[in-house]
Design a protein around this nucleic acid. Structure first.
Lengths: 197, 197
DNA sequence: ATGGGCATGTAACGAGTTACATGATTTT
DNA sequence: AAAATCATGTAACTCGTTACATGCCCAT
């Protein structure tokens, strides 16, 4: 009667999903996988991964094959259970997806651009382009790893999508930057800085 | 000595920044503005806006011109102070920007696509394209409001950037969808569903 | 011997959401 | 008469991060 467990947050399913590829993984390994997904889904902190695994375990969605010692420190490997697979499938098939969350502080700062000098904004956008291209390079590595592995067919679709995404982002930002530089001289708001000296 | 206040989270600056355009705003009005920024910065819950305003007020970054009654319920208008403007400028000019956070649960679900049928994934992506186009329409309204207002010159740059962004997103997702549909028949993993009936 | 990678976990905190509470005015 | 909009706020909670604690192995 009182067994209406609250729904799990998306982050739990992200952890659960990583165990659905067949291999048992430790918390530590899950963390590394999750980091490769940061391009489209922000990974939880290391400590949260361990607590998610405990919660998933309480629900019977994962099981820990007991501690393995490979000469290294103790290592607790987790497997997804049939119950867990069922729960994952139910989640995957839910009609209503929650909205995509974006927190782009560069965009936010540019939005308040009237409070600072255009050169500051330009520098910020330059760094953003650099960062985006770096992300792109890192994503390309992940993608190369996944394409041609049939197990990761769908996953590779996502990383490829991500490549296009960050590519487009970098290009759009560069165009924006060019426009911003073009306005540097002509903008009435800031042209008085010329007369300052 | 002990006055090392902890740095404010980005969300605080989002609220503070909205008061930097000159007009005093109430919590309620800030909420509406923040919602127009959801395209590039996820807005805090209504209740959090009020608590951020209290925190900002404690730091002397904003001041509340006392309660105004326009026939309607009480309305507390907040203004940014010179101290607040200084703090905002310092934040805007910080060299190291924090990373952009993305939580795209559609991408996440597609990443685990091996656990469900391609038709489910296709339906999901279709809905995502629809949602993206709807976002685009809403953003266009905001953008129209801001362009040509000199006060919002920088802000309009962001909304325009956002338009390109969501446009690109919709197109990329449609291409992805086409590819997914193309694989529906040829993929060995799922071709056995044909023999099911 | 120093630093980095492997490996797990706890405690305290801060960020952020949900649900609730209230009540007037305007629109349908 | 009902619903939406305006308007503010509290309490309880969950989500998620940071910092700390531990300790081994491996490479430089």
């Amino acid at each position: 009667m009182s067994d209406e467990l609250p729904p799990l947050p998306t982050t739990s399913y992200a952890v659960l999903g990583l165990l659905s590829f067949g291999e048992p993984l430790s918390g530590y390994e899950i963390r590394k996988w999750a980091e490769n997904m940061r391009f489209f889904y922000w990974p939880p902190a290391q400590s949260q991964i361990y607590s998610e695994l405990r919660r998933l375990s309480e629900r019977g969605f994962v099981e820990s094959a007991e501690v393995v010692q490979t000469g290294k420190p103790d290592k607790r490997l987790y497997c997804i259970t049939p119950t867990g697979e069922g729960a994952l499938r139910v989640w995957l098939e839910e009609e209503r997806a929650e909205p995509t969350i974006v927190k782009n502080s560069v965009a936010l700062k540019l939005f308040f651009g009237h409070m600072t000098r255009p050169e500051v904004l330009a520098g910020m956008l330059e760094r953003f382009v650099d960062d985006t291209q770096q992300m792109l390079g890192q994503l390309a590595v992940v993608q190369k790893y996944m394409e041609n592995e049939p197990k990761f067919a769908a996953s590779a679709l996502v990383t490829e999508w991500g490549c296009h995404h960050y590519n487009a982002e970098a290009e759009m930002t560069q165009r924006l930057l060019a426009r911003l530089r073009g306005q540097l001289g002509t903008n009435a708001d800031y042209s008085d800085k010329r007369s300052e000296r």
